[in-house]
Design a protein around this nucleic acid. Structure first.
Lengths: 325, 325
DNA sequence: ACCCTATGCTGACACGTGTAAGTAGTAAAG
DNA sequence: CTTTACTACTTACACGTGTCAGCATAGGGT
């Protein structure tokens, strides 16, 4: 095999009978340059005929900026909702000419420096926030934007907060509206979920201090928790998650026919299993499409050096009412 | 703001009082070069002190090869299992010095050419296979490896098949072992899942032709399907998915106390909701860790121009027995 | 005949890196 | 004293691109 050489813009220039600069001007539609229609079409034809693909590395090196947006995924298990969000975000950013990629895996495996060094992204999205040193290093390396989706607002660069508190507030609102006075909060077992659980819980607290209990994804321990909640006089439970909510339901069921009659449970996420549960699970869902659009416009604005519009929180989060609450 | 200039290896060289080449040799530990311990430590110290981060773009441009492995995610909803697989894959590839990134979103949004052009990856993983033109274009652009996780074996480059058929076989094996003679297959509603559903179904067929019915993730239509299965004399159902299996269970429950007694259901994936279902769902699970290790070694081998070991299929897929079958 | 402007294009440089080739200096071998 | 061999470096080039400055030609206005 004769080592298939890469096709460069010089090849296109040779074939079209023009200089390399002209090729660049034509293919990038550089404003302020006047190219005759004849040569333009010759260049385009040559490029298409050769299957020319500009080297991203060279372009990035020259311009100092790539069109890649890097999202650092957290190490907790990503489910359907996050997957959905990523897909929508990718679509929205593509509309603005940006390429979205996600890097899964815990930061312990690899220092994050290694990652953005290998990509040279225009922007970095993260769920938790960065240390000062990391932020500094990124700026020094030419990363235009650093955004933390979660974390204390206004620490590093432009930040952007998905309103987790609002989720908890909607849960409590619904249960209180249904007449429940004493609430419980089903906290997730996995400590990595804490960064999401805490703000949600604080949203619930706006309606009175709930009885917080950790509920593993297992019917046995969940039954214990439910029994103690009943003893406390709790009648409505906000669960961190649909999965935690399913565990609560499973626990209530295991207690026998006596307990579950009055116990209301509300989850978060509206996973497919929620509507199929016994009883069908009432849950709080986020409009991932709308959220993705907002995130994308914020990123696009920030890459351009501007600041984006605020998040419209009105219709973003709503309750899907089923039978469990 | 005085436009924070990027720190290059020239800065490090200046600070350490050596040439730029020496810096490169030290930092890359280039074999065959002899550097005195004194200068080595001076260089390392200078690099650390300045917070030097080599430009990935320049390095990729020079070497013609980046250390990024790009995974093109399909447009169907990715769940917990895929998320898990990606995480493990990232960890394993990091061990070999490769950076793993995933690109979500349908190909309709953006031609895939746009994506690898913007990344210049060393390898591309995909779930479905590519067209001939796409493969050709990638090779021409210097992408070392193109792998399709699914699709007809031996078409383009090195391929790699996750044994979906084996999943279906294990399901049918379990049900037949429990004495069920007439099986049904619960096919997913979403047409995008066909590329997974077909091989799984063909695995079930190894144990006799099942009665195939599409089951939406809704209790009502699922109840219809279950009623017709019962009329057909079907006693055991292999579901495409845990979610589809939950729909089948919900359908059976809706039919009233008469039907579900004898109906066995087995799913795939072991999602968290499976163990919390009524009854707890028997399911088939894939060892994502082992699969990730195998994928990673295959990718690493192929990037190095070699061919990887075959997939050990013995312990990879096993049945988690609960109460539903 | 002269200047001025617009058009259509080319030459040359810089981005930051890896690495082949070359060069002093030292030491051992002949 | 010359040759050889090795250490510890440096100089110089190439990777492929975007873009600034410049150059020829043509056309009009005075």
């Amino acid at each position: 095999m004769p080592e298939p050489r890469r096709i460069t813009s010089a090849d296109v220039a040779r074939r079209a009978g023009v200089s390399r600069a002209t090729v660049s001007y034509v293919l990038n539609a550089t404003p302020g340059q006047s190219i005759s229609p004849a040569t333009r079409s010759r260049v385009l034809e040559a490029a298409a005929g050769l299957g020319y693909a500009p080297s991203a590395a060279a372009r990035t090196l020259r311009t100092g900026r790539s069109d890649v947006v890097l999202c650092l995924l957290p190490d907790w298990p990503i489910g359907n909702e996050v997957g959905n969000l990523l897909g929508n975000l990718s679509t929205e950013l593509a509309r603005a000419g940006l390429t979205f990629v996600a890097h899964p895996g815990s930061r312990a495996d690899r220092p994050i420096a290694e990652i953005w060094k290998a990509i040279t992204p225009a922007a970095v999205l993260s769920f938790s926030d960065f240390s000062d040193g990391e932020t500094e290093a990124m700026r020094a390396a030419g990363v235009a934007l650093v955004v933390a989706l979660l974390g204390r607002a206004g620490r590093h660069g432009r930040e952007l907060e998905v309103p987790q508190q609002l989720i908890g507030r909607r849960q409590a609102e619904h249960l209180c509206g249904a007449g429940h006075r004493r609430l419980g909060y089903a906290y997730p077992d996995d400590p990595r979920l804490q960064i999401f659980a805490e703000p949600r819980l604080s949203g619930v607290r706006a309606f009175g201090e709930p009885v917080v209990r950790t509920v593993p994804l297992d019917a046995g321990p969940a039954a214990d928790a439910v029994a103690r909640w009943c003893a406390d006089g709790v009648t409505g439970i906000c669960a961190y998650n649909d999965e935690v909510a399913l565990a609560v339901l499973a626990g209530a069921r295991r207690l026998g026919p006596g307990a579950p009659a009055g116990l209301a449970v509300i989850g978060v996420d509206d996973i497919p299993a929620a509507r199929l549960a016994v009883p069908p699970l009432t849950t709080v869902t986020t409009d991932q499409r709308m959220l993705a659009v907002h995130l994308a416009t914020t990123v696009v604005a920030a890459v351009g050096g501007r600041t984006g519009p605020p998040l419209p929180t009105d219709d973003l989060i709503r309750v899907v009412v089923r039978e469990s609450a």
